[in-house]
Computed example of a mutant assay.
Amino acid sequence: MIKVYGMKISGNCYKVQLICELLKIEYEWIETDGRKNETKSPSFLLKNPNGRVPIIELENGNILRESNAILYYLAEGSIYFGKDKWEEAQILEWMFFEQYSHEPYIATNRWIIRFLNQKDEKKERIAENHTKGLHALQIMENHLAKNFWFACNRFTIADLALFAYTHKADQGDYNLSEFPSIRNWISRIQSIADFAPMED
């Protein structure tokens, strides 16, 4: 059984939880709350010197860090992975987009507003993030207006990676009513067999 060190309210950690549920991978969840500096403890830093969750610890003691790398590792060979090199590249394209052009703005505003309660103190950063987050959402909306899924014409870990923070974007003051194709995509994912909702 693998060990998952994560924080339930984190979208990046939720990615790992959801792929485990979808693939029926047995796992032990070890709640590790960054707000309580649990990711900065000496014992945790030995597992991840970067002081972040999620990480997974395999039965052989190997440790894998970074949410999308974990998704890639756990999903390999499943229906949520690419069938060939081209499909794998399509999936990775959107997963890199999620981490570089999406998560830094949408997830960060959610964190500042909902969990740090610093909407006034950090209004300038929120405003800057908001513009960039809207740009990412518009790219997603344009794609989903013509496609049901982000890669390979089926639900893959590319969708899972983008879903985690997108479906909670309203908590960062993004109005998803302006993005009907994204909302339909969210509903499609939530109707998938063995879907597990995010706790927050």
Rank of each mutant, 00 (worst) to 15 (best):
I157S: 10
F115G: 05
T108W: 12
I139V: 13
A158M: 08
K119H: 01
E121M: 11
L162W: 09
E103H: 14
M95L: 03
R110A: 04
Y165H: 01
T108H: 06
Y165Q: 01
I139S: 05
D120V: 14
F163V: 01
R114L: 06
I112E: 07
L160P: 15
T131P: 14
E121C: 06
F163Y: 12
F97A: 04
E103R: 09
N129A: 00
I139Y: 03
G133T: 00
E121L: 14
Y105G: 02
I157Y: 13
F163T: 00
K146Y: 06
L134P: 12
I113C: 04
I106C: 13
K122M: 15
Y165M: 01
M95G: 00
C152R: 10
A145T: 11
I112M: 09
N153H: 08
K123G: 03
K119C: 03
Y165R: 00
P104Y: 00
N147H: 15
H167I: 09
I112F: 10
F163M: 03
I126T: 07
E141D: 12
M95K: 03
P104G: 00
R114F: 13
N147W: 15
E103Q: 07
F150L: 14
S101V: 00
I106A: 05
I113M: 01
D159Q: 01
R110K: 09
F96V: 15
R114C: 09
H167G: 08
H130S: 02
A151R: 11
T108R: 12
E141W: 14
T166Y: 13
I139N: 07
M140Y: 05
H102A: 02
M95T: 01
F148K: 15
I112A: 10
F155L: 03
M95S: 00
T131E: 14
A164W: 04
G133Y: 02
L137P: 08
P104M: 00
F115D: 07
K119M: 06
H143P: 03
E124G: 04
L160Q: 05
T108L: 11
E128C: 13
P104F: 01
A107I: 04
N147T: 11
F148L: 15
F163R: 01
L134R: 08
A164K: 03
G133R: 02
N153I: 13
H130M: 11
T131G: 06
F96L: 15
K146L: 07
W111C: 09
D120T: 09
Y165W: 00
A151H: 03
I112V: 15
I112P: 10
A161G: 14
A145L: 13
E103N: 10
G133K: 00
L162F: 11
A164M: 06
E128M: 13
H102F: 09
D159L: 02
I126N: 10
K146Q: 10
A136H: 13
A107G: 03
K146F: 05
A107C: 05
E98Y: 14
K119V: 08
T131D: 11
R114H: 14
I113A: 01
A151V: 11
L134Q: 14
H102P: 15
T108E: 08
K132C: 05
N109R: 06
H143T: 01
W149T: 12
M95Q: 02
I113V: 05
I139G: 05
I157M: 12
N117R: 10
A161S: 14
N142A: 02
K132H: 07
A158W: 09
Q99E: 07
R125H: 13
